[in-house]
């Protein structure tokens, strides 16, 4: 995906964060969020391998071999950071103490189901911490391209890939749109510049509720 689209998705997700939030970002596109935290908002990033208070990447030559994030990248710790073991880390996650998690997706559907950990017969990386994060975080935001590389919709009526968790997605932010899960169904909240409501509907298999402000 083009850098400007990645930045656009990251900036839009960053607007969802509130001052004081504890946040866990998945690997890849979700990490873009950290580059767009609005001024005046202080959020604390967890990495599930065992740190709260993740700081920026170290300068070249300053890497500490014992300081990585869950993606294996070198990190620093901010003042006020803490280290803990993996059971405590997932206790934090599963226990509902993380305010927001941002994760990528292979598929997401109109019932809030998420599939992001395996493609049967092809890719079996394993779920890592994704199932715990999606199950436990207070708010689950999906960051992804609206369609797959072949142009097929990724927002479906029903996920066909093995699920990561059932009914846990609250918001989907893509290059084309922002969609919110509500008790009534999936609501199209925003359409990105350069696209129309019809463009989004065509690129989405799920049934969408179109609110008055977009009609």
């Amino acid at each position: 995906m083009a850098m400007d689209k990645r930045a656009q998705i990251g900036a839009r997700i960053a607007k969802e964060l509130k001052d004081g939030d504890y946040v866990n970002l998945g690997i890849g596109l979700p990490t873009e969020t950290a580059n767009h935290i609005p001024p005046g908002i202080r959020v604390v990033f967890q990495s599930e391998n065992g740190i709260m208070g993740v700081g920026p990447a170290p300068a070249n030559g300053e890497e500490d071999q014992d300081m990585i994030n869950a993606g294996g990248g070198f990190i620093t710790a901010l003042p006020g950071a803490s280290y803990f073991d993996s059971a405590t880390s997932f206790g934090i996650i599963r226990g509902g103490h993380i305010d927001v998690t941002v994760l990528g997706a292979l598929q997401v559907d109109q019932e809030g189901n998420l599939a992001n950990w395996m493609i049967p017969g092809k890719l079996i990386p394993g779920m890592g911490g994704a199932m715990d994060l999606v199950t436990g975080a207070k708010k689950v935001i999906v960051a992804m391209e609206h369609c797959d590389k072949q142009g097929n919709p990724k927002i479906l009526r029903k996920c066909t890939l093995p699920l990561t968790a059932k009914g846990r997605v609250s918001l989907i932010v893509t290059d084309m749109a922002v969609l919110e899960m509500t008790p009534q169904g999936l609501v199209l909240q925003e359409v990105s510049e350069g696209y129309t409501v019809q463009d989004v509907v065509k690129a989405t298999e799920a049934d969408l509720i179109i609110p008055d402000h977009l009609k």
């Binding site: 599963r94 199932m131 199950t135 436990g136 699920l163 968790a165 059932k166």
Partner: peptide, 10 residues
Amino acid sequence: LTPTGLGTVV
């Protein structure tokens, strides 16, 4: 007892 994995192959 954990909720993680409910509704999945796990």
